[in-house]
């Protein structure tokens, strides 16, 4: 009973997750036993060189893939046991993806791109409209609502992607190298936006290989050869890119307490 309550409180629990791929005759051990607890409103950076299992871990966390063995609970739901259709539903409701290459649908305008998760979630049209407009407003693109992605700058496109990730109010925003395709100034703006979201109570996991991106997070998990090499929390933000008003929240202090 206590375990269950604890599980529900935690945003995300991975315990001893192993992922093995079979490539031809060879077995590739991408994750060799990874255990991570991430509580609500944490801001985590996952780092590691290529081949460290970083991408695999992101796919597992993002419910795009299931572990070969081990447990994964997302908001109390056992993801490792899910069918493909349940995984799709979980991604839809609980996870907001932000990709390096934005991954917007080129034929659809900003509104339709942001609205899409709500459509697959089966929400009614008026509610979709209200939520979509709100999410677009949060990323400051209200005046670009009916533009196609190719009419937007890189930074604007990534903001659209963030709005799409936000629109269903997911348990977790999962960003994969979100500034990788942007110049440093625009990248800073995007990271500032993540900081702002975190300040507003959002749980965020950023996968990156850039230290200065990881510095925005309050906790850094370093992977090497499919294992956690280092899991450290920063007591204080070491970045100067914080927007005014985006002070570490109470929830963050709570998370910090729990880790102790």
């Amino acid at each position: 009973m206590n375990d269950l309550t604890a599980a529900k409180n935690k945003s995300l629990i991975l315990s001893d997750v192993v992922k093995t791929y079979v490539m031809g005759t060879e077995k590739v051990h991408a994750l060799r036993g990874v255990s991570i607890n991430i509580t609500r409103n944490e801001y985590v950076a996952i780092m590691g060189p290529s081949g460290s299992g970083k991408s695999t871990l992101m796919n597992v966390i993002g419910c795009l893939d299931v572990p070969t063995s081990g447990e994964y609970f997302l908001a109390g739901e056992p993801v490792a046991m899910m069918s493909e259709s349940q995984l799709a539903e979980t991604r839809n409701r609980m996870i907001g993806f932000v990709f390096q290459t934005f991954n917007l649908i080129p034929r659809a305008d900003v509104f339709h791109n942001v609205e899409m998760p709500l459509i697959y979630g089966g929400m009614s049209r008026p509610e979709r409209r209200a939520r979509t407009e709100h999410a677009i407003e949060r990323v400051g693109l209200t005046d670009r609502m009916h533009h196609k992605p190719n009419e937007l700058s890189g930074g604007q496109r990534q903001r659209v992607a963030i709005a799409r990730a936000l629109v269903y109010e997911p348990s977790l925003i999962l960003a994969d190298e979100p500034t990788g395709n942007l110049d440093s100034k625009t990248g800073d703006e995007i990271m500032a936006m993540f900081d702002e979201l975190h300040a507003a109570g959002q749980t965020i996991v950023v996968v990156t290989h850039e230290d200065y991106i990881a510095e925005h997070a309050l906790r850094t998990i370093r992977l090497k050869d499919g294992l956690i090499e280092q899991d450290e929390r920063h007591d204080k933000r070491r970045t100067q890119f914080t927007l005014p008003g985006a002070e570490p929240s109470e929830a963050h202090s709570a998370a910090g307490l729990e880790s102790a």
Binding site: E84, A88, N92, N103, L104, I105, M116, P117, Y120
Partner: peptide, 16 residues
């Protein structure tokens, strides 16, 4: 293919 990947990532099921 990529569009299908995006749609699936944000929650589209097979039947959609």
């Amino acid at each position: 293919t990529r569009e299908i990947g995006i749609r699936k990532a944000i929650g589209a099921k097979r039947h959609s």
